[in-house]
């Protein structure tokens, strides 16, 4: 009897985040995604330690060699070790994904908050701007910018970031529109909290869960966009490896048909990273669902 009471007393309500984390851990696919992502991140960061070769230096005696013990994934058209390049490319591709999604989130949140909280004419103007950016033909813009400035990693990050913010802006705006009429906002105003504090201290924390999910999916999109840009030669310029520009070699028919070790590894990496990020996003969405939080 006394032990049950002692036990009952120990049960304290958990915080929102620990509850969410527990729900996330129950999501098998999300856990799988998280583990894969962890491995990808680790191999990308530790790339120079993991392989003895340089990702850039050419070795013209070993052109397009099939996998051997020395070169586990073979070599490419100018004799560089594919495994080394795939790992180093992970650094570039993942950081392009990360940086461009950060730019996109930053712009999206600022515009979304301004539109959703201030409302009225500001909202109208900002949303028309958002619609405009959404209807931009991305490829045309990218080709123009790349042609004007020359392809570079930073340009790729910037372009992707500046083309993908509208979805986040719309999401944040929608959340702010519905949250700002909630009674707790009126209650906060009734004790003299300033507009700025209401927007960022009261409303914003309520949107973090959906923003987190959107950012996760946005990262997957950014990685894909980087890959397609680089595949077209408009993203990360050679010789720096990225998963996208490694796939460029597959543009020739005889490589596509006869030398799968050259294009299969970067392709698999793209698929794997995008898939695992999407799984993580699914898991986060379920774990952070506000309906199950309250």
């Amino acid at each position: 009897m006394t032990t049950t009471i002692a036990k009952l007393e120990k049960i304290r309500p958990e915080s929102l985040w620990s509850k969410a984390w527990k729900r996330f851990l129950r999501h098998k696919l999300a856990l799988f995604g998280l583990s894969v992502m962890a491995v990808l991140l680790f191999t990308a960061i530790a790339a120079p330690v993991l392989t003895p070769y340089s990702p850039i230096k050419q070795d013209l005696r070993n052109l397009r060699k099939a996998p051997t013990a020395e070169h586990m994934l073979g070599t490419d058209g100018v004799g560089r070790d594919i495994l080394t390049r795939v790992l180093h490319a992970g650094r570039i591709s993942l950081s392009v994904g990360l940086v461009s999604v950060s730019i996109s989130a930053l712009v999206g949140i600022v515009i979304g908050v301004a539109a959703g909280y201030v409302g009225g004419k500001t909202d109208m103007l900002l949303m028309r701007l958002t619609d405009m950016v959404m209807t931009f033909p991305s490829l045309v813009i990218i080709i123009t910018v790349a042609a004007a400035t020359g392809p570079s990693v930073y340009n790729a990050m910037l372009i992707i970031g500046l083309l993908t913010w509208p979805s986040i802006a719309r999401l944040v705006r929608g959340q702010f529109l519905s949250l700002r009429t909630q009674q707790f906002v009126t209650a906060a105003r009734s004790i003299g909290v300033s507009n700025w504090e209401i927007a960022f201290k009261h409303i914003f924390p309520n949107t973090i869960s959906s923003i987190t999910v959107a950012i996760t999916f946005g990262m997957a999109t950014s990685i894909l966009m980087e890959a397609s840009l680089s595949f077209l030669g408009l993203g990360v310029p050679p010789p720096t490896p990225s998963w996208g520009n490694m796939l460029r070699d597959a543009q020739s028919m005889n490589i596509l048909e006869g030398m799968p070790w050259i294009w299969l590894p970067p392709g698999i990496m793209i698929a794997l990273s995008v898939l695992s990020i999407n799984f993580i996003g699914d898991g986060l969405r379920d774990a952070l669902d506000p309906r199950s939080l309250l």
Partner: peptide, 23 residues
């Protein structure tokens, strides 16, 4: 803003929605 909360305060109808759920 200086008057609200300091001079005049208000208690609302529904306590379930008057507090910010995430703070």
């Amino acid at each position: 803003r200086l008057i609200r909360g300091k001079e005049i305060a208000m208690v609302f109808q529904d306590p379930m929605t008057s507090l910010n759920p995430v703070l």
